[in-house]
Nucleic acid binder design. Structure first.
Lengths: 162, 162
DNA sequence: GGTGGAATACTCGGATAACATTTGTCCGAGTTTTCGAGG
DNA sequence: CCTCGAAAACTCGGACAAATGTTATCCGAGTATTCCACC
């Protein structure tokens, strides 16, 4: 039960793209250079974000990624489901249906598994909390801790790095 | 990001042990027979529950597992942390600390990562919901759907099966 | 000098390996039963 | 018949493989640039 680190990478890159404030696409090489990440793997991790409509990608020499919408319209839930997939963490295998004491064949199993219900409910709380957190709010918190971070990022990305 | 199926097995076994209502230990062979599970692997999955103080195990010919406490004192959170471990699902790798634009060496990183904070908060909601669900409540829900399940289980386990 | 076009440099995208975690199996240490010999 | 003891049967517990998922890398398809021959 471990969340892929790609979620962290993707969220940071979204914040970074907004901080840079440029309209031109930014290549994975430049994004990866900022955090010291392997460029090819970062590219692989950002691809599902394109399919989820969070980023847009353009090929070619001046290509790269750019935000498809504002940070206020992107939640942590969006980023997570884009990378981890829509499946729930707890997948009930319905082992109770293999219980050998049930005399009813299948009618008793229309009611959902009580354990599954409880698990789903808890997981729903988690997803609800994730959906309530927009990247804009997170960015705001980050800037509260480091007020001059935006200008520093822009300074660094002004000159053509890698 | 997938929860081990051992969680489902363990929770079902706890309910089953209570339904059986016997004070004598129950072997993994008998528990596994009820659900058609591989006995050796079920044994492996139940071991962390012993270390967590949810079950007690006794070796020997008449050995097996029994509940260490009442179902009302066992929560889904207990079962999950016993099997999955205490680590959080989202583990922040702090890639921001490798950001090359920071001029401050380490002082700026005493403040926690905003993404990590949001993730931890959401995960806390999940764990809180899990901790609020006792196995007793889940068992009650299960009995609501199948009122005669307890007696059926006791009937089946009365005679010496595998 | 201006224009058209081919070569080029650089991008994403998916196919391909290395590694880790989960899943599954097996055998040994230990305890209770059981069986039998002796009193 | 009762007692004692050794052997056996059965248990958990952890060590040992197979399978699945995650992490990392590489090369091909495609596009904007760039450079140069030609008008």
């Amino acid at each position: 039960m471990k969340i892929s680190e790609g979620v962290e990478w993707a969220a940071h890159c979204c914040l970074l793209l907004d901080w840079m404030g440029v309209d031109a696409p930014v290549s994975t090489a430049r994004l990866a250079a900022g955090y010291g990440l392997p460029p090819a793997y970062l590219n692989k991790q950002l691809q599902p974000l394109v399919k989820a409509g969070i980023l847009t990608s353009t090929a070619g020499k001046k290509g790269g990624f750019r935000l498809a919408k504002g940070l206020k319209d992107i939640t942590l839930m969006d980023v997570l489901t884009a990378i981890e997939g829509p499946a729930e963490a707890f997948q009930c295998a319905e082992i109770r249906q293999h219980g050998v004491w049930g005399d009813e064949p299948a009618s008793a199993f229309r009611a959902p598994c009580a354990i599954d219900t409880a698990m789903r409910g808890a997981e729903l709380e988690w997803r609800r909390a994730l959906a309530a957190q927009s990247l804009a709010a997170i960015q705001q918190n980050a800037e509260l801790q480091a007020p001059n971070l935006r200008t520093q990022v822009q300074e660094w990305y002004r000159e053509p790095r890698p």
